[in-house]
Structures are given as C-alpha cells and as structure tokens.
Write a protein that binds this DNA or RNA. Structure first.
Length: 258
DNA sequence: TAGGCCATCTGGTCCT
DNA sequence: AGGACCAGATGGCCTA
C-alpha cells in the first residue's frame, strides 16, 4: 500500500504522524501528485491510481476514456474524502496524546476503537474522582453550605486548596491519585522507576488498570472499574499509583451508567 | 494462515 | 451544484 509505505513501518493507523499543514508530507507518492494537481491534467497519475487504487480500496477501473470529466470529479471527491479521513485521524492522534496510555516510538498505538473506549472510561474516571473530591471537600468544611459561605468570604475556589492544610486528609490522597492518573503530558511528577522498568505503561496507565492487555480491558467497559485497583505485572510502590478504596465504588457505579 | 486494523475508493444521502 | 458525512467493499500490513 502506498500510504503504508509512506508512513513507515510503525503500523500506525495513519500517516498523520508525519503530517503537517503543508499537506504534502504524508502524500509522498502518486496520490500526493494527484492531490496537488487535482485541478490540472492529472490523467496519468489519476489513471494509475484508479487502476490499482494505490494498493487499497476497490479495484474498479474506468476503462472508458471518454469519462475524463467524471474521472476528474471522482478524483476530487476522493482527495476530499482522503483529507477528511486524515483530519479525523489527526483528531484521533490528538486524543491519544492526552490519554493515560504509554506513548513512544516503541509502543504500539492504540487502535481507534480502543482509543474511543479508553477515552470514555477515562472521562468517567475523572468525573468520578471529581465527584469524590467535591464530597471530600464538603466533609472537610462540614457540608456544602459551609463551602458556599466560606468561598464567598474567602476566594478559595480550587478544591486542592484545603489539602494544603490537611496533607494527611483523604482528600490529599485523592488528589494524589488524581495526579497519578493524569496523562503523561500533564503529569506533575515523573513516572516512578518501578513502573517504568516493569512496563511500557506509565503509572497513570497502571492506575487505570491498563497494563499488558489493553484490548482485554477495553472490550468490556466495566472491566476498568472492576480492576483498576489491581496492578498485575506492575509492582509499583509509588504512592501515586495507589488509588483510594472509595474511588472504586464511585467508578463502579459510574461505569454502570450508559 | 487467520484475524485485526487500517487506508482508500466509491456510491448514496443530507445539507447549504 | 457542491461539499460533508457515512457505510460498504477491497486489499495491504502486521501479529499471534
């Protein structure tokens, strides 16, 4: 396949890994020529591509040379569709970047479906953690009403603020585990050596329960909630990787929500 | 070798 | 009419 050969051997989903705005970096073949010259006489390039479909796709051949106009239109539509799919893949890649999953040249990319499922679970987990934090903040200040009055007089908006005064409070642990679940790009602490040496996955991935078999977890969305406290193959002593027991129930209930 | 994943083509439908 | 979106079909690459 031309696109595959152009994108290297990383078996990554799309050539978007090497794409930039110039729209030419991922079209290093006949397709690119057609893409750039679609409004010009692209018979030779287009013809070759339509015959073999650049290694993929249907192999319908337009043997009728009288349909050049229709062929041009077809090529135009094809390139538009190609661009659309590339944009989609780019968005998928940007989503992968913020997912709690190991990233790097040696790590296989998440598939599209896995990315979407992981994203869903990740959002659910973060929502659950947020709810839990709100509850804990309410406990610290003796209820929601207290929070309201206090925030009115004292502009402490972030729930992390009380934790600074109560480092041993469960809220602090909750925040700690939240940090541990933050995507690599947003993490405030470096991955613990134990996890780094044991797996490709960072501690955040371990926190979510994503270790060796991501696919197995992603097949069942509930699997995340039921196993995210376990770390098979990830004996990470780092405190950031220790989730709160209370989070489990929250997550479990959340994962039930459709 | 089978199955999974992917890119691409293609025709249809809907919208502006 | 043209473009966006979608789904089916097809073939290539990779891994177990």
């Amino acid at each position: 396949m031309d696109s595959d050969s152009g994108s290297g051997c990383s078996r990554s989903s799309s050539p978007d890994l090497v794409v930039d705005d110039s729209a030419g970096s991922f079209f290093s073949n006949k397709i690119f020529q057609t893409y750039c010259h679609e409004n010009r006489a692209d018979d030779e390039a287009g013809q070759g591509r339509t015959e073999r479909c650049s290694g993929g796709g249907k192999t319908k051949s337009r043997s009728d040379p009288d349909k050049n106009e229709g062929q041009d239109l077809r090529l135009k539509v094809n390139s538009r569709e190609r661009k659309r799919m590339h944009d989609l893949n780019q968005a998928m890649d940007s989503l992968r970047e913020v997912m709690p999953y190991a990233q790097g040249p040696s790590v296989r990319k998440l598939s599209k479906i896995s990315t979407l499922m992981l994203a869903r679970n990740y959002i659910l987990m973060l929502s659950g953690s947020l709810d839990e934090m709100k509850k804990l903040v309410g406990d610290v200040y003796g209820g929601g009403a207290a929070i309201q009055s206090r925030t009115a007089a004292h502009p402490v908006i972030t729930p992390a603020a009380p934790a600074a005064h109560h480092p041993l409070h469960p809220l602090a642990q909750s925040l700690h585990s939240l940090v541990g679940s933050t995507p690599p790009g947003l993490q405030h602490h470096s991955p613990c050596p134990a996890a780094a040496s044991a797996m490709h996955s960072p501690p955040s991935a371990g926190f979510l329960g994503f270790h060796a078999s991501v696919q197995g977890l992603l097949k069942d969305p509930l699997h995340l909630a039921s196993t995210y406290r376990h770390f098979p193959g990830m004996p990470c002593p780092c405190s950031l990787c220790q989730p709160l027991p209370t989070t489990t129930s929250t997550l479990h209930s959340l994962s039930m929500i459709k």
